[in-house]
Every structure is written in C-alpha cells, then in structure tokens.
Design a protein around this nucleic acid. Structure first.
Length: 324
DNA sequence: AATGGCATCAACCGCGGAATC
DNA sequence: CGATTCCGCGGTTGATGCCAT
C-alpha cells in the first residue's frame, strides 16, 4: 500500500446522516437507469451530495429491490447461530446463505438478539435446539404489520393502535401542517399536472452532460417531501420494502411507486382520523398499471410533478404523478 | 410529566485486498 | 513492481423510541 490513503471523497462537501426520500429517489432512479459500475463517481453523476460508500451502503442495505425486510424467522435465526459457530464474524459470508438479507442486518440481529440469547440459552433436551429467554422478543415495530395480505384498513387500524399518544398527537399536528402546506402549493400546480417551478430554486445539477437532465424537485420541494416523510415514518420502512418486494417480483421499477401508494393510504387514514376530508371510495387510490414504470424511468427523465390533484376534488387527494 | 437507561438499527469509519495504472 | 484507486467487510457510533422509575 502507498503511504497515506486518499479520502474517498471530500468530507466537507458530502452530506451525512439519514437519507431523505428525495435522495433515495435520486439514487434508485439513477441506478435503475445507469447501474452502479462506479460507486465513487455515482454521487456526482446522480447529483447526490453523498460519498460513494454511503450510496453503496444505502443501495445494498435498503434500496435494492430484492432486499428482504422484516423479522428474521426462527429458522433463519437458528441458521445464523449455526453459521456463526463455523464462520465467526464473517457477516457477508453468513449473509450469502440468506438471499435478500444483508450482512449489516445479520450483524445487527446477532449483536442485538442472538448474542444475548446465547448468553442465556438453556440447552433443549432434543439436542442443540436453543430456548430463548422470555425477556428477549422481537421489536413490536416490525411485527405490527407482518401480514402483507391483510386488509389495509385493518392493518392501519392495528398500527394506529400501537402508536403512542404523544406520537399520535404529533402526527395529527403534522397532518394539519401538511394541509396548510398543500393549500400553499395548490396554486403551483395546474390541471395538466405541470408543476410550476418559477418560485423555486434549482438544486445543483449533475455535472456530466451525457446523462439526461435529472429534473429533481428543488430545495423547496425537498422540504415538502421531508415533511411528508415525517408523516410516513409511522409506517415502518420494513413494511414498505416488504410490500415492494412482494408486488414487484417481475420488475424493480415499482419500488418507490408502491411505497408511495402504501404511504398514501396511510396518509388518508390519518386524514380521516382528523376529519380533514370526507370519506371516499378507494377508487382513487389506484394508479394505472403502467404508471410505476413511467414514473421511475420516464424516457425523458422528468420529475417535474411531484403531486397531482384530482380534478374537481380540490385538495382532497393527491397523486404522485409522472410527467408523461 | 420528567428523566434516565436500555434496545434497536441505519449509517459511518477505517482497514485490507483486489484491480488497475 | 510499486503506487493508486476502488470496493467490500467488520467494528462502531449516533439517533431514536420504548420502558421503568
């Protein structure tokens, strides 16, 4: 090795910490269109203020369409324990035995659950099977909605019941804020769905020009999405991903799209809880089947329209809608 | 209601090794 | 063949939420 190693990126120029939905969207969209042959160059090309390693990690551990979310089954946990006995802390090797699971996830499960379980293990009479301490249980957040095919209304109801009172209050306040924000936004959206950008500043654009211009929402848009993201946080990312995987086996293009559909249902549920809008039938929740594909990888790569109001419905309902 | 401790997990950091120059 | 670049791995940290007091 040489003396001293060049930093992978300019630390002062990169953003750190949790990824925003807008950043996720950029990353997923870019990778689906261009792949990820060079992680180091990717953030710049995708217009992301992230280091390449961060992008890679985010993709592998979270955004990759085949990533499997949710609780580990008993069988998986037992297999991890057995593999760890032979492989040690070779998380990537252990993960290779579990399609869809990531080394990071397995490492976390080991450190948070399995290691402790082994410390308390009581050898079972039928040879080798481990009996876990009753004090160790899976997190409730990821078990609330484990049944992906359950009726959405029931799921939402169940989930809402698990939300603490303080969080409910905060969410409901956020919903109100969201409606106030929507009021401000309505004039910016015309009926053809074109998002009016005149009052908004552009974010820095990718420097390379051989990639179709990525019309990502501007900073003001990001604020809006971040607010939405805050509301959506009640639905676990695991659940979103689970639904995405289940509903997109033939195509990875629907990751963001389906997550959005689920989020929207959740949002509507909360809106109804607040009494902010009349109950409506579920018809409006369905987007055309081809919308997912056109949304994520439109030919001209445009994301000019984050939201589209239903015609004649005022602010009642909003769709994430592609520019076709 | 406040707060301190604990659990969880996403994300970061630094290193080693492979690939390339 | 050494220097450099990049990727992937494993350890660790920090933010957040939950729960007991």
């Amino acid at each position: 090795m040489g003396k001293g190693r060049a930093p992978c990126c300019d630390k002062s120029q990169v953003k750190k910490g949790p990824w925003s939905p807008a950043e996720d969207l950029r990353l997923v969209t870019f990778i689906q269109k261009h792949g990820h042959e060079n992680w180091r160059a990717l953030p710049k090309q995708a217009g992301l203020l992230r280091c390449g390693k961060s992008c890679r990690l985010r993709w592998i551990n979270y955004l990759r369409p085949d990533v499997k979310r949710g609780n580990f089954t008993k069988e998986e946990e037992e297999a991890i324990i057995k593999l760890h006995q032979t492989l040690g802390n070779k998380w990537s090797k252990i993960a290779s035995h579990f399609p869809g699971r990531t080394d990071n996830e397995i490492k976390n499960v080991w450190n948070t659950h399995l290691k402790k379980r082994l410390a308390f293990k009581v050898p079972h009479s039928s040879g080798g099977e481990l009996k876990e301490s009753s004090s160790i249980s899976s997190s409730s957040s990821s078990t609330i909605m484990s049944g992906g095919k359950r009726n959405m209304a029931i799921e939402l109801d169940d989930q809402w019941k698990h939300v603490s009172v303080t969080k409910r209050t905060r969410v409901l306040e956020d919903i109100q804020d969201l409606h106030m924000e929507m009021i401000k936004w309505v004039p910016l959206v015309n009926f053809s769905g074109a998002y009016v950008r005149n009052t908004l500043e552009e974010v820095s654009k990718p420097e390379i020009q051989d990639i179709a211009a990525v019309e990502i929402p501007s900073e003001s848009d990001l604020d809006f999405w971040n607010m939405l993201d805050g509301l959506y946080s009640l639905q676990t990312n695991e659940e979103v991903q689970l639904h995405n995987v289940e509903t997109n086996k033939n195509s990875s293009l629907g990751v963001e799209y389906n997550g959005e559909v689920e989020n929207r249902k959740w949002l509507r549920y909360l809106e109804n809880e607040l009494g902010l809008e009349p109950a409506r039938d579920g018809k409006q929740q369905n987007l055309p089947e081809d919308a997912a594909e056109s949304f994520l990888v439109p030919e001209n790569y445009q994301f000019e329209i984050p939201m589209k109001p239903e015609v004649n419905s005022g602010m009642e309902y909003y769709h994430l809608w592609p520019s076709l």
